[in-house]
Computed example of a mutant assay.
Amino acid sequence: MVAAAVLALVLVAFYLSWRATRLDRLHHRVETTRAALDAALLRRGSAVLDLVAADGLPPERARALADAATAARRAPETQRELAESALSRALRAAVEPSDAFGGLPDHLTEVASAARRVHLARTFHNDAVADTRRARRSRLPRALRLAGTAPLPDFFEIDDEPPAIPPPPAGPDTL
């Protein structure tokens, strides 16, 4: 009888330890994906500023892009989603009529690649946040406070649709 109670207690303790460790791993995953998202956003901002510095854009488009990229970099954390969304919109408005950019295919390709990476990083981050919230929402972790004092992670919602940039024309030496 005592052995059964001790065994049950050990199994419950093992299960609770496993759940707490799982929550810790999920929170670590959120932190990691957030760092990757921040890096992707900075990379996109740098690619946009490189495009502007290439001096092939019309001045009004270059100014709008530079202002949006600078605002996104300097935005406080509470305003970051709005600033990054504004950069996405400015990027699409400035780049999508890409017929005027004959001399900037490398810069446009880099911007398009960075914008796709932002979309992927945001998707991975939001998936990690959803998994963590789902795990914390069940009764046992809430009742026993298995998540400790870790704050509930937030989704990162921005307009991250990449601009429609056609691929550069294939030359004779690209096969």
Rank of each mutant, 00 (worst) to 15 (best):
V2H: 00
A3L: 10
A3W: 06
A4N: 08
A5V: 15
A5I: 14
A5K: 00
L7G: 01
L9E: 04
L9I: 07
L11P: 00
L16N: 09
R19A: 08
T21E: 10
R22C: 05
R25N: 12
L26E: 08
R29H: 07
V30W: 03
V30N: 09
E31G: 12
E31I: 00
T33A: 09
T33I: 06
A40W: 08
A40L: 12
L41I: 09
L42W: 03
G45I: 06
G45V: 07
V52G: 02
D55S: 11
D55G: 14
L57W: 05
L57G: 06
E60R: 15
A62E: 10
A62M: 12
R63K: 14
A64Q: 12
L65Y: 06
D67S: 15
A68F: 02
A68H: 02
P76W: 03
E77S: 15
E77F: 12
Q79Y: 00
Q79A: 14
R80M: 05
L82Q: 14
A83C: 01
S85K: 03
L87A: 02
A90G: 08
L91Y: 03
R92D: 09
P97T: 07
P97I: 00
D99P: 04
A100Q: 14
A100P: 07
G102W: 05
G103M: 11
G103Y: 10
L104M: 10
T109N: 06
E110F: 03
E110H: 07
A114L: 13
R116A: 12
L120H: 11
L120S: 12
N126D: 10
D127L: 05
D127H: 13
A130D: 12
D131P: 09
T132G: 04
R133T: 03
R134E: 11
A135Q: 01
A135P: 04
A135L: 02
S138T: 00
R139Q: 05
P141I: 05
P141F: 03
L144D: 07
A147W: 04
G148L: 02
P151K: 01
L152N: 05
F156S: 05
I165Q: 04
P168L: 04
A170N: 09
L175M: 02
L175I: 08
